[in-house]
Design a binder for these strands. Structure first.
Length: 304
DNA sequence: AAAACGGGGAC
DNA sequence: GTCCCAGTTTT
């Protein structure tokens, strides 16, 4: 959960997740739908799918005993393998996360682009050389903590840094310029027109295909263009909001579609969706856009 | 090697 | 707005 996600953001999900899946066996035995539902809202859903796969492997083959076994599990890369090997197994492997990259970049005055694979390899070697091999877990956590509490990204607190006198970046007065990160993501603006189709307390949701690259198998509001022409013609806009994902900046426009009699509402047939009441909506993975839209619809209807 | 992946908090 | 978070996988 902590991969590319702030600790504070992950904690409530972590607590609910462990309540729902209290053991590796429980997680391994659960359907993927339930795992995704518990993860819904936290993002980077490949983490949930990979964790689920890893739990199945561990349930089948037993816990990993060495660094290579840990690294071989799905969803576990260089950083997480190092963290598990050092903290859980006491093995001498560095754990280089974003915090540690920043600390090493500054302490050594290294201005390699930390977005490059070469720099990651380079920093990994430096971290392995610095590692306290007698207490690798404590060392790694100390490095991460230094980055999280003192060697801050925008405003490092060098005055209270225990290694300030060894810091080449500080000596050069370049601590704020490091680490160097060249890659910039270009964001696109996308408008999303979504249809809120209700039947009593129920809402019609469609399921994203399993082959979708993003948010596969998640449920969401249908797009307005999926409405049949007659239903589309009677849509009324009920609100809009913004939602940013990795490279897309969505402007979401929410439309209420009205049915008249028994006419068909959608262009698709058979419908790749179904009606959900509020209890059923808690049992499937919903996209955050959909959660926001449903919340917004309640607000708009309550206020007007 | 670069792009994709979700979302939110800090500034 | 921009940056980036206890990164990994896919292209």
């Amino acid at each position: 959960m902590l991969q590319q996600t702030r600790v504070e953001a992950a904690i409530p999900f972590y607590e609910r997740f462990l309540e729902r899946f209290p053991s590796i066996g429980a997680l391994a035995a659960a359907p993927e739908n339930d795992v995704l539902t518990a993860w819904s809202g936290l993002g980077y859903y490949s983490r949930a799918r990979n964790l689920h796969k890893a739990a199945k492997q561990v349930a089948e083959r037993g816990l990993p005993a060495g660094h290579a076994d840990v690294l071989a599990l799905p969803g576990i890369g260089a950083y997480t393998a190092g963290a598990i090997a050092s903290i859980a197994l006491g093995l001498p492997h560095a754990a280089v996360d974003g915090n540690v990259m920043r600390v090493i970049s500054r302490v050594t005055g290294n201005d390699s682009d930390i977005g490059s694979a070469a720099a990651r390899r380079e920093f990994g070697k430096i971290a392995d050389a610095l590692l306290d091999r007698a207490r690798p877990g404590d060392f790694n956590q100390a490095m991460m903590e230094l980055g999280a509490m003192v060697c801050l990204s925008r405003a490092p607190v060098c005055a209270s840094c225990p290694v300030a006198k060894f810091c080449a970046g500080r000596a050069a007065g370049r601590e704020r310029e490091l680490p160097v990160k060249l890659r910039k993501q270009a964001t696109r603006d996308v408008t999303l027109d979504l249809a809120l189709v209700t039947r009593g307390e129920q809402v019609f949701l469609v399921r994203r295909a399993s082959a979708e690259r993003r948010l596969a198998d998640f449920w969401e509001l249908p797009a307005k263009r999926q409405l049949a022409d007659s239903a589309d013609a009677r849509c009324s806009k009920i609100g809009e909001f913004r939602h940013q994902i990795v490279n897309d900046r969505f402007r979401v426009i929410l439309w209420r579609a009205r049915a008249s009699g028994a006419e068909r509402l959608f262009n698709f047939d058979p419908a790749p969706g179904r009606w959900f009441d509020s209890a059923e909506r808690e049992q499937v993975p919903l996209t955050t856009v959909t959660k926001k839209a449903l919340a917004a619809a309640n607000i708009f209807s309550a206020s007007g």
